[in-house]
Nucleic acid binder design. Structure first.
Lengths: 224, 224
DNA sequence: AGATTGAGTGTACAGTCGTTCACTGAAAAT
DNA sequence: ATTTTCAGTGAACGACTGTACACTCAATCT
């Protein structure tokens, strides 16, 4: 029974002993350790921050010798970029989910916030990474997130343009509104991440109230 | 001429050669190197983040041997807390400045944003530190900032309670409004810090519009 | 069947890190 | 005038960092 179990990373108990598993081609194996490296990095970064990553610990947690890291990533920065892209994909998935929410515009806000909350809960590490590195990060990683976030605000602005009270808003005003919403929701995400398990409901409730307040101002806006 | 000049930290050219300077008591000297340590740490943290701090580099930049650090701080964490307190004092000074702005409630928003902008410009390192560690930080530092920020939102809520349309708002609603404002302004701070020198004006302009939009909703709010 | 590829291994090296310890020497206290 | 205090010194430690290099050996290609 030589089950290798490195630092809480449970190596799937397969490999040869049972005949029914793992025809596993070479590329599949490679992809698997690549994922293991990414997962280890993500977990570690969501705790200590990207700056506090250690190539050696990532490798150890992935069940691989340190030098093997370079078979998958040229440098730590490349891994960072990959992590940003991945987390951003997660975020975008969330937005799409909120967009296709059950039609009724009455409690569209409630539905959106609910979607956000659930998504954060089920992708905590990705959101930790995003929120952390958006502000705390260094160089390339932070800037990439910043750019992607502005891009995302742009998409949101387009979505908003379809709503009744917003049809005649200028592009610039829409973008401002989207930015405002994004920053408010980002703060909500952090609150959700830091919250002790019970208090989830009141956080989402407050998030809803913030959005409602913002949209209350919309009908009275005149672009000066 | 044995002028010691360590890594860009210019040692004031005093000490004995000119008779008119430096009676400098022992405590004064101590306080001076303490400040040098704090300044070095602050500068370094505003670039690489608090997690990326190195005791040795801080000491070097302060013109002192590494071990001397322990004469002033028991640990890195203690230095971190000191930095938080200091930066928070700066922030509070700003708030007070905005509160006592020239009375006219008409362009009170404009005045406040202007105060914010100027304050950020003249205390970049403190604001970098706060924004960075608020989200990116680890453990004690991040939590301390979070708590202080909530406290500050509380103060802001009290201030808001004095305004016309807000006199009958519940404490909870006021706090929500204050939170919303704080998160929006925090995003503005980051924008200001990252902005290339020219684009300062448009950022403050957008910040003003965001605040105006928020306050447009205020008269139509009814606490559900 | 034999040659090739390449993911993962193991060792080794040069740095940096925080921290310890015994010390120096001038300012402060006696 | 003598003793005490203590900010700053300098060497040494053990642990950890990223990275270079030569290696193995099973999956893949010819």
């Amino acid at each position: 029974m030589t089950r290798v179990d490195v630092n809480g990373v449970t190596e799937p108990a397969d490999v040869c002993s049972t005949a029914m598993t793992a025809p596993e081609t070479r590329n599949e194996r490679k992809e698997r350790t690549r994922r293991a490296l990414l997962d280890a990095a993500l977990r570690q970064a969501s705790e200590r921050g990207f700056a506090g990553l250690s190539l050696r610990e990532i490798a150890k947690q992935a069940g691989v010798v340190p030098t093997a890291f370079y078979r998958h990533f040229e440098s730590m920065d490349e891994l960072g970029v990959t992590l940003v892209e991945e987390s951003m994909r997660t975020l975008r998935t969330m937005i799409r989910g909120a967009r296709n929410a059950p039609g009724g515009s009455a409690d569209l806000i409630r539905a959106s916030v609910r979607t956000l909350s659930e998504h954060v809960r089920s992708h905590e590490e990705h959101y930790w990474f995003l929120v952390r590195e958006r502000y705390g990060g260094t160089g390339a990683v932070r800037q990439t997130i910043g750019v992607e976030l502005k891009l995302l605000a742009g998409e949101l602005a387009v979505d908003l343009a379809r709503f009744d009270g917003l049809r005649d808003w200028s592009t610039d005003d829409l973008r401002m509104l989207a930015d405002l919403i994004v920053s408010a929701m980002l703060a909500t995400v952090l609150d959700l991440l830091e919250a002790r398990p019970g208090s989830e409901a009141e956080i989402t409730a407050e998030a809803e109230r913030k959005l409602r307040l913002i949209f209350l101002g919309v009908p009275h806006w005149r672009s000066s």
